[in-house]
Each structure stands twice: as structure tokens, then as C-alpha cells.
Simulated scan of single mutants.
Amino acid sequence: MHPAVADALDRWNAAHPWSHNDRYARWRDALAPGGTLVVVGSCREATPAEVRECVARVLPGARVRRRLFWRWTLVHRASAAGVR
């Protein structure tokens, strides 16, 4: 995928969130200015707070919420100015 070409990306992450910061960075870089990244994760060992802490460096301001059972969602909006 070429950098900054997607207005929206949706992804499923069934592994530990802390092992994929490079993946989150690639997805972030693929977003066009003002674009949105949505990740639905499933990991019994990670709480939303742990996910938030793990992605804070790569996706500052990302919103992480707990969902049913062990699922969580992460929403990150790229700045409209394209600043990462």
C-alpha cells in the first residue's frame, strides 16, 4: 500500500497488541490526512488500558474501548494537516 492513500482502514487483530506496533505504524502511514483507522482486536490477556499504553507512541490520541468478552476496538483519526 502506498503511503497516505486511504481515507479509511478497518483491520482485525487477533494477537497481542503489543507485538504489532510496526503494523500499526504502517496502517497509520497509509491514512490520508483526515483518514480513520479502526481495529477490532481479540486478546484475552490484554485489557483496554494495556492496549492504550502499547499503541500510545505509534497512535497518539487513539481511542480504545472494551467490547463484549475479550474484544476491544481502537479508533485513530489522522490529523487533517497530515501531521503524524
Rank of each mutant, 00 (worst) to 15 (best):
M1C: 04
H2Q: 13
H2A: 10
H2M: 10
P3I: 01
A4N: 04
V5G: 13
D7A: 11
A8W: 00
A8P: 00
L9M: 06
L9N: 03
R11F: 05
R11Y: 04
R11T: 13
R11K: 07
W12S: 15
N13T: 09
N13G: 14
A14E: 11
A15V: 15
A15E: 15
A15F: 08
H16G: 13
P17H: 03
P17V: 01
W18Q: 14
W18H: 09
W18K: 13
H20A: 09
H20N: 15
H20V: 10
D22Y: 05
D22I: 00
D22R: 13
D22K: 02
R23K: 05
R23D: 06
Y24C: 02
Y24T: 12
Y24V: 00
Y24S: 01
Y24Q: 11
A25S: 13
R26T: 14
W27T: 10
W27N: 11
W27P: 08
R28D: 02
D29V: 15
D29W: 10
D29F: 10
A30C: 09
L31M: 07
P33G: 06
P33C: 11
G34S: 12
G34I: 12
G35Y: 01
G35A: 01
G35V: 02
G35T: 03
T36H: 07
L37C: 11
L37S: 12
V38P: 07
V38F: 15
V39N: 05
V39F: 00
V40G: 03
G41K: 00
C43H: 07
R44S: 15
R44T: 14
R44D: 15
A46Q: 13
P48M: 00
P48R: 01
E50L: 01
E50R: 09
E50W: 06
V51C: 03
V51M: 10
V51R: 10
C54P: 02
V55C: 00
V55P: 07
V55Q: 05
A56G: 09
A56I: 13
R57N: 07
R57I: 02
R57M: 01
V58T: 15
L59M: 09
L59T: 05
L59F: 10
P60L: 04
A62E: 02
A62D: 06
R63K: 07
R63Y: 01
R63W: 08
V64A: 05
R65M: 11
R66L: 12
R66P: 05
R66D: 13
R66S: 13
R67L: 08
L68F: 01
L68Q: 10
F69T: 08
F69L: 04
W70D: 14
W70T: 11
R71W: 01
R71N: 12
R71V: 04
R71G: 14
W72R: 03
W72L: 00
W72F: 02
W72N: 00
W72Q: 06
T73R: 10
T73F: 05
T73K: 09
T73C: 09
L74H: 09
L74V: 14
L74G: 03
V75D: 10
V75L: 10
H76F: 09
H76T: 00
H76Y: 06
R77P: 06
R77E: 10
A78K: 14
A78C: 05
S79C: 08
A80S: 09
A80V: 05
A81C: 07
A81I: 12
G82S: 01
G82D: 12
G82V: 00
V83E: 04
V83A: 07
V83G: 08
R84T: 05
R84F: 06
R84N: 06
